[in-house]
Design a binder for these strands. Structure first.
Lengths: 154, 154
DNA sequence: TTTACTGCAAATATTTTGCAATATC
DNA sequence: GATATTGCAAAATATTTGCAGTAAA
């Protein structure tokens, strides 16, 4: 990654952190090291992840409980910094960062695989849509179907 | 609803029922009255619903267990006849029919409300997209943000 | 100094599984 | 007739809550 790209990423995280801290303040919640560490770890992920992945990663370095991870993910969900999904037919809950993360997925409902696809048009068109009174912040597009591998098996 | 609309709806359900029955056969599963009743009830819903809503509705007329509802919803998920979601910040699981039900939602992450919006362009564009080996069957679009009501409260 | 947050453990909620009876094929 | 599915209850998972100690404001 180039220097300018790294700077961009750091700036972006500053915005994220600020939004979280403002939300906490507005809600009368405290800024704790646990909450910040969880936010950092969430934003270090490029893929979908489950709650226990976060917990197990955090556990390696800090003393932290699952209850705190649940609590923090709920806060992040409320202030639009995290998305929570159920994709595929396995029915498992997955999370991903939300800020500037407008993803488009194709999902095989047979094997549960979620694969990202890029589409510049959607990326521009969807954020440009307006709705009375509604301030949009990010979006997700899911196209469900059956992948090549599973189609062969059937 | 006009006669022709009613016929259309019935025809559409025939296709759904046939797809389900074919899937059951392919998988070596049996066609049971419980499974058909659950499918019917799912397709009678115009909105998102939770599993327990189905169970409580079914219970009024039939002897059926939650385990069967879970089992059947999993089967319907696998054969792309049902979608499973987590929308909003309450983190609750919701379901909806999938066949010919390509919905677009705006979701307020503050109050958890999911509101459908119509967009003819997306409705046509998304199903027309092609991916190597992947057969797409239905889609969902979610635009997350904060609704007017919640923006005022903050 | 006040009180929200923490970890831990217990409580709840959600989902899955084991089993004997039943119904589909 | 063979066996997958059922309801029920018990087990396994996932999530939330109560509590006493700790730490942010």
């Amino acid at each position: 990654m180039s220097n300018s790209e790294l700077n961009k990423k750091e700036d972006s995280f500053k915005v994220v952190q600020q939004r979280f801290e403002e939300y906490l303040q507005k809600k009368g919640c405290r800024k704790t090291p646990e909450r910040l560490e969880i936010l950092k770890l969430v934003y270090a992920q490029k893929q979908l992840f489950c709650l226990d992945f976060l917990y197990l990663e955090l556990e390696k370095k800090y003393r932290v409980s699952r209850a705190t991870v649940y609590n923090t993910l709920s806060l992040l969900l409320e202030c639009n910094l995290v998305k929570k999904h159920i994709l595929g037919s396995d029915g498992k809950v997955q999370y991903e960062k939300a800020y500037k993360n407008n993803k488009h997925y194709i999902i095989c409902t047979a094997c549960g695989t979620a694969k990202e696809f890029r589409n510049e048009y959607l990326k521009k068109y969807l954020p440009s849509m307006t709705f009375r009174g509604f301030t949009s912040q990010h979006h997700s597009v899911y196209i469900y179907g059956v992948c090549g591998k599973c189609a062969k098996k059937q």
